[in-house]
Nucleic acid binder design. Structure first.
Lengths: 356, 356
DNA sequence: TTGTATGCGTTATCAT
DNA sequence: ATGATAACGCATACAA
């Protein structure tokens, strides 16, 4: 019977090492912090040996306590379920690695309570800064960071009343490119599908950009549909209006001499989760060949997009995360610039859905 | 011009509060730790006010240092890109919340170096335990945990030579059910597709279970195909043998009087990532209606599975994460049982791909 | 009921 | 070149 040997045998401390090496703690500390030049080779060797023997590992907590900085930064993610977040995270991790930080990843799981709780928690752990992908609901819950609190940089969305650095997609450009693409491909009815956008800056920006872009193409009719994800039934309900439109377009095509196989209606999903919801719905309603009736284009480029063959705007997620940490790093080092916005360009990935 | 006000104004300490409230630090400490009964209402009020005024928040680092426990546990994830991991994570988070832990999430991104580095890092931060979804490559890198080190519980896979609790899917049962399902649905050529499995226990178990299950059905021909994900070209290369088999089966069907629309070949993906790779490949080679030629069944039930209509075995991911933390909690509390394995049952989700 | 003193594991200051 | 010693912010044994 295998019994994991128990009872943490209390880890060695710096004092233990000092005793083992027959010297004072100061020298050990010096050794640990790379002040090698001031140590005699012999002492240095003894220390090395002692550390080895005791398998000593310095206690970061104690270090942080003394120094006043613990190299911890918080990363608050709204929804890890969204591939976008995970990709950003990879950029964050890479940058942290490069800059010597340890990211404390927190997952709010789309719950405002969680967001608040984690922010508070991060604060008590004295992280040196936070990079937050906010739910965007209330500036109130973000009170501890930014302005008066610890340095913060926002990702993807900004929060009203909170003045901080932020890095995200250049929504205006992305939406413009995407819309033009649809028009050029011959779609004359474009529906922009988005979650409730009043309180989330990126959604709001995208929606606004969509309408602005449309003014360029008077021959195209466009509209915004707001969907509340999460409840599949309610979603289907909301989308009946869309279904009707699609059916109508198909009828028209059949009557005229148009190419029935080429859809005129395009759905423009404001982000990946919306796109997935749409694809599921359409797939269920029209079957596997739903793309013959509607085109689907989405901001965000999740893994399944290629499989489904939908056109997307891929965000520079990795860079977004990386830049965010760089910004934060500067702030932590005390840089005193005014709040900066870093807008990175997206990339149009054209796939079968909107092909000629 | 908005300039984020700078220079952390040094957070208030317990001493500050004591001074502000005109008392000693002990009382503050008592207040913080809920020893309210021992405080006079008046003092208590003064403390409350002082804390409020100074916006005081206890320093967890210092707390942990003193107490010897910081309520931190490490969560080492092999690959956050895999929806499985994220789902497990949600269970972990919920359990942590319930039990008063703060999970320190680390993402190894499939890199052994990262795994080692994070383990080391977690150790220096003196986490009270770790739950690890190991890469499984080497027991060596996991040396600091388990047996002699800090309490650990493994998720999804165990590691040779490392004796610890582990919780994951009941692979044997899952594969048995899945295989039987395929056979009952009339597939007589089943390919089990899996990543290199020698060193990853869950893959190994699944592969073995597949062959064991097959012995029940002599009329079915089955084989294992090993694929190395990540390199699409090499993958396609490897799968040519599969393509040939599929084509051949189709030919046979055409010649005989069988129903050409019903595939006889089924692919059994050992996990979600493999399934996605397969779907992409097939989609590219045979077009959107590839499911008419091959069926696809997968362990893991990612979001896109429903969209694609493939049959899956859904893992009880949330529970896995939750149980893992519970196990860890017991270990931290000093429970001295022998290493436990917790095998949770999967659930067959039948979709169009394998429908009659 | 309240406060004092000591120590957790480190680093920084100041001697030697 | 090396080593006492005093903090860091907090909790606790003990005294009052």
């Amino acid at each position: 019977m295998n019994t994991p040997t128990s009872g943490a045998p209390r880890r060695a401390t710096i004092s233990d090492v000092a005793r083992e090496a027959g010297t004072g703690k100061t020298s050990i500390s010096r050794y640990l912090n790379g002040e090698l030049s001031v140590l005699s080779p012999q002492l240095r060797a003894r220390i090395e040996a002692a550390i080895e023997r005791l398998d000593y590992q310095p206690n970061q907590m104690a270090r942080g306590l003394k120094r006043g900085r613990n190299r911890l930064i918080g990363m608050l993610v709204a929804d890890l379920t969204n591939p976008y977040s995970v990709e950003v995270l990879q950029g964050v991790e890479a940058a942290c690695h490069a800059l010597g930080y340890m990211p404390l990843i927190c997952h709010a799981a789309n719950e405002v309570d969680m967001e608040r709780r984690f922010l508070q928690l991060l604060t008590t752990y004295r992280v040196e800064g936070v990079i937050v992908n906010a739910l965007g609901v209330s500036e109130e819950t973000l009170r501890p960071v930014g302005g008066g609190g610890i340095p913060a940089v926002l990702v993807d969305r900004s929060v009203d009343g909170l003045v901080t650095d932020m890095v995200g997609l250049d929504n205006e450009a992305a939406v413009t490119v995407a819309t033009r693409h649809l028009v050029e491909r011959g779609f004359d009815r474009v529906w922009f599908v988005v979650q409730p956008f009043e309180r989330v800056s990126s959604r709001r920006l995208r929606e606004a950009a969509f309408h602005r872009a449309l003014t360029q193409y008077p021959q195209v009719s466009g509209r915004t549909v707001v969907v509340e994800l999460g409840d599949a039934d309610e979603l289907a309900q909301t989308l009946t209006v869309l279904d009707a439109e699609i059916d109508a377009a198909m009828e028209e095509r059949k009557k005229s001499d148009g190419d029935v196989m080429k859809p005129r209606v395009a759905l423009f999903a404001a982000n990946g989760p919306v796109a997935l919801a749409l694809a599921r719905h359409l797939n269920q309603r029209y079957g596997a060949d739903w793309q013959k009736r509607v085109a689907l284009l989405s901001i965000d480029d999740p893994e399944w997009a290629e499989l489904a063959g939908i056109t997307t705007i891929r965000q520079p997620t990795y860079d977004i995360g990386y830049r965010a940490v760089e910004f934060l790093h500067e702030r932590i080092d005390g840089v005193q610039a005014s709040a900066r916005d870093c807008l990175l360009p997206g990339e149009l990935i054209e796939r079968a859905s909107t092909a000629r």
